[in-house]
Simulated scan of single mutants.
Amino acid sequence: MHLLIDQLDPYIEINPIGVPNENYYPGTSTIMKAGDVLYSSKSFLTSTKIVGHVAIVGPDYRIYHVNPVGDVAGKRDTLTDYRNRHYVGETIYVYGPSSGATGAANWASINYSSAKTYEIINLEPLSSISSNYCSKFIWQALYYGSSIDLTHIGLKGSS
């Protein structure tokens, strides 16, 4: 998870409460951008029951992510719905990729519904979308949507 944070530029943090305008991050004059990566630091006893969660803003300002809640793992939420998945007091950080944001956002919006099962202990190759988890989905969006490997160790979809 540190690789994702270290290689993206943070420019705002938001707190999960009301949203006056879905094109702006709540309580700010910062415009949402396609490809923004949302990161929430979590502990075992918080809303997702896992440590940390990432999502990406799509070209339609919807939030695309993979989590274990519900029948299908791939999710397309409004910012309000996404924020409601977090407890009050949890912080969501916004990171803007230095390049490739549009391609990654488009890839996520096209492929999120292919994520059928949530498996954090995942032996499937990185190319497998159907068996997925949140950070793998963001890696896929950046890799397949913009040819960016966040790890800088040469991972491929077959890895």
Rank of each mutant, 00 (worst) to 15 (best):
M1Y: 12
H2L: 11
D9V: 12
P10M: 02
Y11H: 08
Y11D: 02
Y11Q: 05
I12W: 10
E13C: 08
I14Y: 02
I17D: 15
G18E: 11
G18C: 09
V19K: 03
P20F: 10
P20V: 01
P20T: 06
P20S: 12
E22V: 07
E22D: 13
N23P: 06
N23Q: 13
N23H: 14
Y24K: 04
Y25K: 00
P26D: 03
P26A: 01
G27H: 03
G27P: 04
T28K: 01
S29G: 13
T30G: 14
T30A: 13
I31Y: 14
I31N: 07
I31E: 13
K33T: 01
V37Y: 00
L38D: 00
L38N: 03
Y39C: 06
S43A: 11
F44W: 15
L45Y: 15
S47R: 05
T48E: 15
T48R: 13
I50A: 15
G52W: 02
H53P: 10
H53T: 00
V54G: 11
A55E: 01
A55F: 08
V57Y: 00
P59W: 01
D60H: 06
D60G: 06
R62N: 13
I63S: 02
I63F: 04
V66S: 02
V66A: 00
V66M: 02
N67L: 03
P68Q: 07
V69G: 14
A73P: 09
G74P: 05
K75E: 06
K75P: 02
R76D: 14
D77A: 03
T78L: 05
L79Y: 08
T80Y: 09
T91N: 15
I92Q: 11
V94Y: 00
G96T: 14
P97T: 02
S99R: 10
G103I: 01
A104T: 05
N106T: 13
W107H: 04
W107Y: 09
A108C: 07
S109M: 12
I110R: 11
N111A: 04
Y112T: 01
T117D: 09
L123N: 10
L126V: 08
S128Y: 04
I129W: 06
S131R: 10
S131L: 08
N132C: 02
Y133T: 01
C134R: 02
C134L: 02
S135T: 11
K136W: 00
F137A: 01
Q140P: 14
Q140K: 01
A141Q: 05
A141F: 02
Y144L: 06
S146E: 05
I148Q: 05
I148H: 03
H152D: 14
H152K: 14
K156V: 09
G157P: 10
S158G: 07
